[in-house]
Nucleic acid binder design. Structure first.
Lengths: 122, 122
DNA sequence: GATTTCCTTTACGACTTCTTCACGAGTCGA
DNA sequence: TCGACTCGTGAAGAAGTCGTAAAGGAAATC
């Protein structure tokens, strides 16, 4: 019987080369640990729970911050930006968070299209 | 049955160049013995039992001190600091204890980032 | 009894994170 | 082209977290 396992430990999400351990607040990218803040981690978890779905800012806000999203609040956008930065630093040739203007964000691991530099003039 | 060898082997943790003999309270760094206090040793053991996992301060506190961590108690942080000092003195180019702000600590042997000159970051 | 080591708590500075604001780029319709 | 709207992101100040030295007392050792 696994002694130290708590109830939450069993919950792990996988998305491409990303491993999200919900109980630990730990994300592994290609096996290497990322350092995410609490907000960043919970936002990633909220999106990764519904891969392929377009999730509204309201849903993300209440999942991570709790309560209702007030008009003009850009917290979700700001943290999506931070999260993208860290994910891209760890895995430059993949994209995870896709914007659907007017609707929300969609989480899905995909290969980046224009990562390679210098494909240049067309 | 030959007690000594098998029993000691089962009670020894290895992490990089670190050897932790649980039954003896002995830690070897690159073969040389470290002098750790009881608290330091048990804290190291508690983290090394779950390599790669983020362990909360609450878990570490109850594993080493016993009972519940009370708000404002910084014992875990203080002993993490002491432990880091001794580990770094023995093995300057390795890091074992990684902080995950808002979540806890993660034990995993890794090369330090800025000890070597011109370290290539893979 | 004196000395040393260890443990706990406190304090403060450094660092990180969170929230909000601001500006610019891109999009869409008239 | 113009105006309204959405989105990306850098920056600033506030708030919170973490690293660590140090003080004082307890326990062990001589």
């Amino acid at each position: 019987m696994p002694v130290e396992a708590s109830a939450e430990n069993a919950n792990t999400l996988y998305a491409g080369e990303l491993e999200i351990r919900l109980g630990e607040g730990l994300v592994l990218a290609t096996g290497r640990a990322l350092t995410l803040s609490v907000r960043e981690f919970e936002l990633l978890a909220a999106m990764a729970r519904r891969p392929g779905a377009v999730v509204t800012r309201s849903e993300l806000y209440s999942a991570v911050w709790g309560g209702e999203l007030r008009g003009g609040d850009r917290s979700v956008d700001v943290y999506v930006s931070k999260l993208r930065g860290k994910l891209e630093a760890a895995m430059p040739d993949r994209r995870f968070i896709h914007t659907h203007p007017g609707f929300g964000y969609r989480f899905q691991p995909e290969l980046s299209r224009n990562v390679h530099n210098g494909a240049s003039a067309a």
